[in-house]
Design a protein around this nucleic acid. Structure first.
Lengths: 150, 150
DNA sequence: AGTGTTGGTTTAATAATGCAACCAATCTTG
DNA sequence: CAAGATTGGTTGCATTATTAAACCAACACT
């Protein structure tokens, strides 16, 4: 595996994230995991992914600490894939992707799914704010380099 | 291009988003665009991507409405790639990816970059809230199916 | 007018992906 | 508890995507 450039060493946090979950299938697997799927066969059926590819993706997701392989809750010898705490931290990524899709990738008359607060049934909101609570857009931000403290 | 399954028809908004920007390079190009890069050569140099692939990715990003090709600000005959309004709506996705990376993909002593509010110099926050302002995690949400209204 | 830069295209080699067949271990049913 | 079905893969081959390098036309600069 020489070809595809690895971003592991990149100082940009987004690039590192993409290095881990930036391929075509990984985020779809994670989405299904958020939807409650846990078994190899469930992912395979839901995504229509080739089984060897699924095997490899699950393996790297486990190796990255996003999924873990635990004994199934029914107590059998079979295993299931579950989101770790780190995996659950991908929630904002999923919500952001979902909201972008909702906003731009559906026809007005087309039906789609919606993410709602279980308690109230109302849609959830994602926003980016400054420390003082102001809503912030891309033009009001800068990227600064934090040097390691020695 | 027959092989890779298209998710265009999927009812899940996240899947549709991934269909548009879910390949390996597109989000990195978008990240660079947020960082102010506009020219073919700038992207190519920044990413180290093969030029033919960059050509194709830029073409599809333009076709999807995320980038647009406009005459360069200096007035020459050359063109530059700029984020559209739709493209700028990917900001939350970039911020979410960045924060995931900051949290999980750097050693404590390693230096990295940080996204800050230009006005205050303080880091920006991304949160997911219910309508009443409560912070919401993955387990407090459900996905509901909105049927098209007829 | 000549030279370098920009923004590509083309070609050939290599890597990733898909697909179908196969297989061992588990689970279910009689 | 044996027989068949299901689960969770692995293997090999065909197809597709990506890369690297060479090439090229249009512009910009002097």
């Amino acid at each position: 595996m020489v070809a595809r450039k690895s971003l592991k060493g990149d100082y940009c946090p987004s690039a590192r994230s993409l290095d881990v979950i930036g391929d075509w299938w990984s985020l779809l697997i994670v989405r299904d995991a958020f939807d409650g799927l846990t078994r190899f066969g469930e992912f395979q059926k839901s995504l229509g992914i080739a089984k060897n590819i699924l095997t490899e993706r699950l393996k790297t997701l486990v190796a990255s600490g996003i999924l873990e392989l635990v004994p199934t809750s029914e107590g059998g010898a079979r295993m299931e894939y579950r989101l770790t705490a780190m995996g659950k931290d991908l929630f904002p990524v999923m919500v952001a992707l979902r909201q972008f899709g909702e906003r731009h990738l559906f026809e007005p008359a087309e039906d789609h799914s919606l993410l709602v607060d279980r308690a109230s049934g109302q849609p959830v909101h994602l926003d980016i704010r400054a420390q003082d609570g102001r809503l912030i857009g891309p033009d009001e931000t800068v990227i600064v380099r934090i040097p390691e403290e020695t």
